[in-house]
Nucleic acid binder design. Sequence first.
DNA 1: TTATTATTGTCGCATTTTGAGACAATAATA
DNA 2: TATTATTGTCTCAAAATGCGACAATAATAA
Lengths: 230, 230
Amino acid sequence: MDETTFLRHIAYDSVIFGFSGEKLKILIMKYHNTGLYALPGGFMQRDENLNDAVRRGLRERTGLENIYLEQFYTFGDVARYKPEIMQMILEANGHYSEPHQWMLDRFISVAYYALINYNDVVPTPDALSDSCDWYDMDELPNLMLDHAEIVAKAVQTLRENLERKLVGTNLLPPLFTLTELRKVYEAILGEKLHRGTFQRKILGLGLLQRHEKQFLGKAHKAPFLYSLGD
Amino acid sequence: MDETTFLRHIAYDSVIFGFSGEKLKILIMKYHNTGLYALPGGFMQRDENLNDAVRRGLRERTGLENIYLEQFYTFGDVARYKPEIMQMILEANGHYSEPHQWMLDRFISVAYYALINYNDVVPTPDALSDSCDWYDMDELPNLMLDHAEIVAKAVQTLRENLERKLVGTNLLPPLFTLTELRKVYEAILGEKLHRGTFQRKILGLGLLQRHEKQFLGKAHKAPFLYSLGD
DNA sequence: TTATTATTGTCGCATTTTGAGACAATAATA
DNA sequence: TATTATTGTCTCAAAATGCGACAATAATAA
């Protein structure tokens, strides 16, 4: 990780959303011996597309390829330049050496959000952090720098996009029921939706394909499974 | 303009929209002796907020303060790194010296669009360019690098935001008629809108204040003037 | 075998929103 | 005083939405 590999002043942060079946969750990292919580982020290699750098980081953190990813804002205030915080993180990891000094300079951060299937992810911390865990969206720890603001803007953008694209399916397995999809919408929007109306609207888009029924051994009618694309 | 003033690798580009009364227009710059057309852009000072850097550039180019400004995407592909083009621009301006070498490095560009009142702007070129003029949105010259893609994404984002916010008024003077506002919408969306329906919807938002009538000396009923905010 | 339970797919109806034409009002001109 | 072009507003049909209802059904209990 030397300064000739990466572009100076440019970082990215990612808000990684997952859905547990009930609540919307976000992947948060904790740095060694500092008590600092942060969004997963990283730097851009000199010969690498910005989007590819983010995908590379997500792959390392989640093990997943082909993630649904959307860039939503670039944060560039001077106020987010706090070298003493990065210094603290580096020192807590035993990095006092010259090759890391470039990380103490000012950065702007391009922010992305990702939607992934909660169940096929094993969160993996990076070299500087000792954990990488799911947190309920409404029970996040105190995040460093402007990361709380980044999360807020991610949620806002996700809500706006939810009404335009059929995006919620990325938080579910390939086959899902309409009730599961509705619960995703409810978790994102933070409100209950009428079952009949939701069903009519989603099916009316003509974007879902119906498959065989899902028998869960429950004492009631079994729902159909659906997948994206017809 | 030396390399210690600005952050390396970071630029911005702005898509500045104006409305002539009929068509949507964009401000385009032409570089001296090169035949190259480009969006107005610039660099970020080391002690400056990203948004402030863009406002500074807009002020220099249009003379306006308090412009409606929206960040919409950050372009970071390797393919947009073409040092020979910047080299050509610098040489055409007689800048062969070391202090400009940092401009030949790779840049990512944060893109903004601005909505301004066409009538109170005198476009002003910068040091490297010899003109700065309005072009009809559907008659743009060939733009350098990925600037055509930037314009396309700006238009797409503007259309999406048009339905959410009452944003078209920024392209008009403080007082305007509903017909003028409708023509702005039609120019942005690229389609005719029904007069009665448009009027009902806009007034139904309750965001416009009605003022005295506008008498233009035309042989027909005079329209009311409106302003934003009640 | 038959009733019970919980949930699903879908329908119907009232309400709201939207699309499109119509018509009187009116500012200037003929 | 009639004509012209455009405005503000209305009405009616069509489409979309909100919300409850009801039969269907998969498993369990009686």
